[in-house]
């Protein structure tokens, strides 16, 4: 979100229940304790190099209930999940986990970066998040490494059935 996009907050954009809803989700329980000190943003490695990514701002927007603005924004997907913010927040807000909760909600709207779709369909197929190239398998042999354990596609599929976001899981990472 750029500064310009954030300037005006219209009452109609606000979901006053948003903060209560997400405070019930695992990892976001302490959202309301944030007092906007800015520690998370000042210590965030991504904020350092990004023009738009500011964890404190995301937390504030969540408290305010700017649901659509947060969930429909690409910025949400920039977090590196390094957990520096979580470890340093003086109020014990699990900032990285709040961001994960928000991403899970964005995913339910179908906002899922391509890399996650690819990794998921690969997990379903082979158990591994990446397609292991044939060359690498041969290289392992040359290096004297044992064969890789195999994934059980059918069993993995069964255990994940019906999870949210449903379309993602039903369509092998599609939406």
């Amino acid at each position: 979100m750029t500064q310009a996009e954030c300037k005006v907050v219209k009452a109609s954009e606000i979901n006053p229940r948003f903060k209560y809803e997400i405070s019930k989700m695992h990892g976001a329980e302490k959202l309301m304790r944030c007092f906007q000190c800015g520690t998370c943003t000042s210590d965030c490695p991504i904020a350092r190099y990004s023009e738009s990514y500011r964890p404190r701002q995301i937390i504030r927007m969540a408290q305010l209930g700017l649901e659509d603005r947060i969930l429909d924004s690409d910025t949400l997907w920039l977090c590196a999940s390094c957990f520096t913010c979580t470890d340093r927040c003086p109020q014990d807000v699990e900032v990285a986990s709040v961001i994960r909760v928000l991403r899970n909600l964005a995913a339910e709207r179908g906002h899922i970066p391509q890399v996650f779709r690819e990794q998921f369909s690969s997990i379903l197929e082979s158990g591994y998040a990446y397609k292991i190239p044939e060359l690498r398998v041969k290289r392992r042999e040359l290096l004297g490494l044992p064969p890789l354990p195999k994934g059980n596609s059918e069993s993995i599929r069964k255990t994940l059935r019906g999870l949210k976001p449903e379309k993602f899981f039903e369509n092998n990472g599609g939406y």
Binding site: S81, R100, R103, F116, G151, L160
Partner: peptide, 21 residues
């Protein structure tokens, strides 16, 4: 004996899927 991804890559999309994996 059998392998599947630890689940971490799916945490951003579905926390529950991560837990299950």
């Amino acid at each position: 004996p059998e392998f599947n991804c630890c689940g971490l890559p799916l945490d951003p999309v579905s926390h529950e899927a991560m837990l299950v994996l």
